[in-house]
Amino acid sequence: MARHELLDNITHKDLKINLRYQPGAGFDHQMARIFPIELGALQAEYPLFFARNTDRDQYDLVALLGFESDENLYLGQGDWLAKSLPLSIERQPFLIGFEGQATSPGSGQPVIHVDMDHPSISEEHGERVFLPHGGESVLLERMNEVLGLIHAGHGESDAFSRTLSGLDLIEPLNLEVTFANGEKTTLNGLYAINEDNLRQLNAESLDLLHQRGYLQHIYMLLASLPQLGALIERKNQKLQSQSE
């Protein structure tokens, strides 16, 4: 279980963050949750889908990063192998907590927590979180911004996927992928835009999607699909380097 602490400049005055985008450094996840505001930036580098969040009975937006549960093909030897970074990756090891006895997500004041078990936590190496006299570092200022975007993004994401689901525009995807070495894998649990139903929408539905800014999101999702081929190529290169 992760150890989440409320961030403050006394307890954490010497806290440093040493981010290493490489296997075993806290980023070994097959998917990253993303938010509508990022779709434009991410669609050129990641295949983007919906995934079912059964706890909340909702569809979340995700970027697919690998083909196994702990595989992240965007990890290099310290560097992230893409120009844009999903907010949910960038925020780490920080997260949003809620002050007071909140009964439900979203009630209470949002405050910054830090996951003290995250591999990037350090007291020797990395970037300082607080300045020597307790002020906020550039890193922390950026984290404030990132977490703020994520906080707003939860509601926007739910509203977006709920509307699409109500129009029957989300369908389950069963993808069989074959790699260059002949290995096969099946991707389950991903959902994509139902293009047949999208084509059959009437003018009123299109107008509603347009008014809410969702039409743009939908086309960004569709435009990201060729990135699945690019992700398979990343995997092929990994397999090849392993066999050499």
């Binding site: 509203a159 709920r162 509307t163 109500g166 129009l167 539905s205 509603l208």
Partner: peptide
């Protein structure tokens, strides 16, 4: 109740 009044409503 989901989507009853308007799409996305709950």
């Amino acid at each position: 109740f989901d989507h009853w009044g308007q799409l996305g409503d709950r």
